[in-house]
Design a protein around this nucleic acid. Structure first.
Lengths: 144, 144
DNA sequence: CTAGGATAGTACGATATTCGTATTATTCAA
DNA sequence: TTGAATAATACGAATATCGTACTATCCTAG
């Protein structure tokens, strides 16, 4: 791969730093509304993306101690947002899935994200929007 | 403004949800390396972006209680990353600025962001990269 | 086929963080 | 010039995070 020009990269970095900061604030607001903390929300979104994942997977992905994740999952179970169950294939682990309530909550977050994305598209004309979405998808689908 | 097609918006939302999750994880990793917590890092980035801002500005932007921000700023001052000073124009408030150490820390984060951005550009060819950066800047510069 | 080690998660207590209330200092305005 | 409004801090209660110790399950070498 040919490295992109340094200036291009610098500008992109600044822009994305702002984007993520905005998304994060939007997320924090929504978290407060649902009286969930930031970690719990991230866990919820990861489980939505990875059904039947194990507790350790979430902990590793979110870079927190296993015990911290265990507490987080406790809270989410207590709030009726996710379900634990022991898979027969490996009864040491717990598989995690969203309940309907959890799905509804995720949908609420996604709506917030959607509003933010909509605002992003605003300054672009229709052709530019199509381009931007196409390139974004190309990046997103290129799994790391 | 004409609303973008629903499907376009949905796809963009999913892609950006993943982006921000990745950035957040990268940030958490860097935060742990500097033994700072998530809030402190966000505060640092905001102050970098808004020199001489007031403590209340940061609290409002990051949607946390004023006392929480006060604690966060305490920690950052103790770690020698920012400086408080009372502006003569309004001696109730405190103006916040990064020290050299704080600037270095921010630069470290930006480097992490830059790596993540670089990885994003990887699946695109040079023409697409130029397009993507151009459109991203157009969005970022359209201040909300 | 079973004993020892490895893996997956939980219980519990220590430390740190967040937040609400009360307080101090400063500014504004009637 | 006094009272209300603004800006931040002090302090204590509630909560979150994390490390250590523990339980349960799985794997594998003898």
């Amino acid at each position: 791969m040919i490295a992109p020009p340094a200036e291009q990269l610098r500008q992109l970095t600044l822009a994305f730093e702002r984007f993520t900061r905005r998304f994060k604030v939007a997320e924090a607001t929504a978290a407060i509304a649902n009286s969930l903390n930031a970690l719990d929300v991230q866990a919820l979104l990861f489980i939505d993306d990875n059904p039947d994942c194990k507790l350790g997977d979430v902990a590793r992905h979110l870079q927190v101690a296993l015990t911290t994740m265990s507490s987080s999952i406790d809270r989410l179970v207590r709030r009726g947002m996710i379900e634990r169950h022991r898979p027969e294939t490996n009864r040491r682990s717990v598989a995690l899935n969203l309940t309907q309530g959890g799905k509804d909550t995720v949908a609420g977050y996604m709506e917030g994200y959607q509003d933010a994305c909509n605002a992003m598209l605003e300054p672009l004309d229709p052709a530019e929007r199509a381009d931007f979405v196409r390139l974004t998808l190309k990046i997103a689908q290129h799994e790391t």
